[in-house]
Design a protein around this nucleic acid. Sequence first.
DNA 1: GCGGAAATTTGAATCGATCCAACAAAAATG
DNA 2: CATTTTTGTTGGATCGATTCAAATTTCCGC
Lengths: 359, 359
Amino acid sequence: MASLLEGKARPIRLADIAKAAGVSHGTASNVFSRPEIVRAEVRERVKAVAEQMGYAGPDPKGRLLRAGRVNAIGVATTEPLSYFFDDPFARVMMAGISEACDATGAGIALVSAANQEKLAWNIQSALVDGFILFCIEGGSRLVDLTRERRLPFVALELGFQDETVSAIGVDNVAGARLAARHLAELGHRRFAVLSLAFADNRTGFATPDIVRGALYTGTRDRLAGYFEELSRFGVDTTKIPVYETENEERSTRAGLEAIFARGEAPTAILAMSDRMALIAIDWLKARGLSVPGDVSIVGFDGVPDGALCTPPLTTIAQPITEIGRRAARMILDHDGAVRRETMGVELIVRASTGPARKG
Amino acid sequence: MASLLEGKARPIRLADIAKAAGVSHGTASNVFSRPEIVRAEVRERVKAVAEQMGYAGPDPKGRLLRAGRVNAIGVATTEPLSYFFDDPFARVMMAGISEACDATGAGIALVSAANQEKLAWNIQSALVDGFILFCIEGGSRLVDLTRERRLPFVALELGFQDETVSAIGVDNVAGARLAARHLAELGHRRFAVLSLAFADNRTGFATPDIVRGALYTGTRDRLAGYFEELSRFGVDTTKIPVYETENEERSTRAGLEAIFARGEAPTAILAMSDRMALIAIDWLKARGLSVPGDVSIVGFDGVPDGALCTPPLTTIAQPITEIGRRAARMILDHDGAVRRETMGVELIVRASTGPARKG
DNA sequence: GCGGAAATTTGAATCGATCCAACAAAAATG
DNA sequence: CATTTTTGTTGGATCGATTCAAATTTCCGC
């Protein structure tokens, strides 16, 4: 009777093999996970039975539960999944993470979600040993959500006050100063800033109040760096327009419109990301302005695209790949400690900056 | 006594909460997975206990084992992990896959490995409900390995004789014919082909024997398409040099060297990938040859980069994003059937092709 | 206060493996 | 040949949840 029902497509378990081969499940398990400790004769017999019954090998689901370790790290963001494949900064970062994972055989699980509830669920149910968080917009929510999982995690970008969170970032103040000094030394005195977000869901000119109340301290630090350095050159920083964008096409162009609609056009633009800088170059060229003839531009990040555009972009390069590698290592070798690392940055002078025009 | 030892950092389980709150595991489980069926008063009490004990929520590892479903799909290749973030074709494909996954809340696990043993292990131990295989070099091995997992999988690229494998690909013959006709109609009569691999680990001019014995039938079909169409225009296809590359920089340049070292230089190049086509444009320009003045080039794939280079690339566009979407859907809605889909392709004429020079 | 329907709660079974202490058999030693 | 050692095998416990049939409680109307 029962044998008639066995046609069911129920997948074969290790226990089935053990029974069929006449050994205990312990031995059957050893045949697959530690073949060297089981007698050759038995080993071959079990393997033959497994082969013949069409056993797919030990199911990782079962192994996982026992082992407790997934051997994969989750990379999460509030952007849609395609962000990982589109955004140049993310891509370079992922290359670094991939490298570290490849080296240890760990896997990568991409986590993201179109909406907030899904994000929460995806974070809660991701099968990973830890998370690397891309703290773009909505970063603080992402951190809160992840904290609840009680797994190790690292935030990329140190733009967090919260000292209890492990993070890797760059020295934003120093980088910003490098950029500002470079332009000032070229003789520029009229500036505009294309800024990253100070808080979520805002664009437009930033007031001192907004800057003081910044949620993203990384943005605040970069601005502080710009201003500190420019002050040393006698520039009145209170007159510098700072336009907060969402680091994408639309709001960046809106920012440029707004900046150039004001009385005195800047001769130099400090962009807090290469992405904005590249959009700016494009916008300026379309407007008939020469870069760097009429306007010089310095970016921030050092993505590969910056080297390929026309003119090639002068920028503050972060060691993006290295940050990715370290973040992955931090999760893989996690020891329970909170680590906060600040990496150095480097000014890369290309052709998007030149001497200020006379007058 | 025992209570003194409880300081151990052993993570809290659902059972601990149940005991502490004085309910059964069943009820405790329901509080988290189906809160609506438990009495409000009990629900709040359990939640309060969980909160107070620092419970991280039901562990996905446990849930997974019971549920049997991971809710994630694996994307595998024999290239290193960074391939997913570097290669333009892969990136567009991933965008399509991401889209489908985002829509259903499924996750993506990237699987790859530097070496063969690791690849096997990674495929065997990936926590996924199915695989999408990028069948580049070593595709057949990848298919064999995946088949052993007995999970649903789809091969991208139909270049497989094996009809028992689900696959999505494009009509290679039709695409190739489109490319060849376009060039022939422009008056070209002297051709060269930059070919994808016919088998693993080979580069150099392909002989008829190699073509006949092709492991990758997709490559063979494209070549057949080129030849069929050119024959109709009276071109002697036996004289056309076909150089097999590894679809990367070094071997493609070597191929170009070899092709142009021969007697009569071609006036048109048929490249089986945009990647090779772009490398060819670069190589020709560096050599002082004008594209399309001296040499016309048609690519294959339709990656975004092709539209941005100078001159913009004429190519056979595959519906890459759509292929990715369908592949993901095939895994997510898997019904046990083997599906083989062939998508149409489209000739996109840009500026890398022009009339053949007189003489 | 009672019967019966509806709403909750219980606890054993299950998912698919790995680990390990205990035991058995074979081999080496005195 | 008795006694260690070495080598292999066994079967119960465990990982952390979910499920479901059965037991219990609550709620209602009469």
